[in-house]
Design a protein around this nucleic acid. Structure first.
Lengths: 174, 174
DNA sequence: GGATATTGCTCAGTATGCTGACTATCAGTA
DNA sequence: TACTGATAGTCAGCATACTGAGCAATATCC
C-alpha cells in the first residue's frame, strides 16, 4: 500500500497527523454520541425492568403533555427541542399505546391539541422511579460533584449552541 | 380534569413532584440527547460548507479504516463503539461513494477486510479543517478550561458505562 | 473427527432525527 | 376583500441505532 507517509519524512508527518486528526475517540462530537448512546441504553433497560415499553423521547413528550395540557405539537416540539417532523411519529405511537390523545383545536383548525390519558398518567407515575434510576446510572462513574459539574457544562454548551440545530429549545409562549 | 393532586394536600404534592420528576430538560439523559443533536448539526453544517457530504458516523469509520488498514467490520465497530448491524449500512455508503473498499478476507471467509481508497484519503485530508472547526464550535459556549473539563467528565462517565450499551468500545486486539 | 459453541455478517423491523416539499389554514396588509 | 406571507401538520426519503433472527464459517471440546 502506497501512502502519503512514504513520500515525506516520517517524523514530520507523524507530528502533523497527531496535531490534526488526533484520536477520533477524543473528539467532543464522538463523546457526545457515545454518552447519548449509553444514556438511551440505560433508560430503555431500566424502563423495561420496570415492565414498561417507552423510549426516552416518548417519555419526555408524555411528561411535557402532562405538564402543559392542551398544548399543540409545535409548542411541544419547542419545549423539548424535537424537530416538528419527528413529533408526528412520536405522538402517533403515544396515541396508539393509549397514553395520549390528539384532538383538532377549535381555535386554530391547523393545530392539534394534545392531552394525556388516565392510562398515560398512570404510566408516568409508575415509571418515574425507573427514569430516575436511569439518570443516576448514566452518571454512575462520577462523584455527585462531578455529575453536577457535567450537567452544568452541558447546559452551558447547549445554551450557546441552541440555535444551531433545526430543533432549538423554545421558551413557553404564554 | 381530575388529577391526583386534587386528592391530596397541594403543597405536599407540589414538593413531591418537584423532587421526583423535576424539569425534564434538566435530566442528564435530555442534556445528552440535546448536546449530541447540536454536535451532529454543527458537524454536518461545517462539512457541507467545505463542500463535502459526509456524516459524523461515516467520518469516524473512514478515519478509523485509514488508521487500521485491512481491519474487519467487527473490529471497526469495536474501535468506534458502533453496533455491528449499523456498520453494514455505513460501509455500504462509504463504498458507494468510492471512499472505501470491502474485500473478502482470505484468512477468515466470514470476514470482510476494509481499505480506504485514494479518493477516501483525499476526502479525509480536505475535510479535516471542517471537522476540527465543528469540534470548536460545539464547545463554543465554554472556556478552554471548561471544554477540557467537559471532555474529561464525559470520558469518565462513558468509561464507567461502556458495557451498558449494545455497542461498547473495544480495545484493539493486535 | 464430529458435535457444539462461537463468531462475522446480513437482514427485517422499529424508532429517532433530519431535509425538503406540500396542504390547509391563519394573519396582516393593500 | 384579495393578496401575501407565515404557520401547523404531514409525508417521502435518507441515515443512524437498536432487537432479534438467520446463514456461513471458524473454534473448541469430547
Amino acid at each position: 500500500m502506497l501512502t502519503i507517509s512514504m513520500l515525506v519524512n516520517e517524523p514530520a508527518l507523524a507530528a502533523l497527523e497527531e496535531n490534526s486528526v488526533k484520536d477520533n475517540n477524543d473528539m467532543p462530537g464522538h463523546l457526545a454520541r457515545r454518552f447519548q448512546q449509553i444514556a438511551v441504553a440505560v433508560f430503555l433497560a431500566e424502563v423495561a425492568d420496570a415492565g414498561f415499553d417507552l423510549t426516552p423521547v416518548q417519555y419526555a413528550a408524555l411528561a411535557t403533555i402532562k405538564a402543559n395540557p392542551g398544548l399543540d405539537q409545535v409548542t411541544l416540539a419547542g419545549l423539548i427541542a424535537y424537530d416538528r417532523t419527528t413529533i408526528t411519529g412520536v405522538i402517533d405511537r403515544l396515541v396508539q399505546k393509549g397514553l395520549a390523545e390528539r384532538r383538532a383545536s377549535s381555535r386554530d383548525r391547523r393545530a392539534r391539541e394534545l392531552e394525556i390519558t388516565d392510562e398515560g398518567r398512570r404510566t408516568l407515575r409508575k415509571i418515574t422511579p425507573a427514569v430516575e434510576s436511569a439518570q443516576r446510572i448514566m452518571l454512575g462513574g462520577l462523584s455527585a460533584k462531578e455529575g453536577e459539574e457535567l450537567m452544568r457544562l452541558l447546559r452551558k454548551a447547549i445554551a450557546a449552541g441552541n440555535e444551531l440545530s433545526r430543533a432549538p429549545l423554545r421558551d413557553v409562549q404564554v
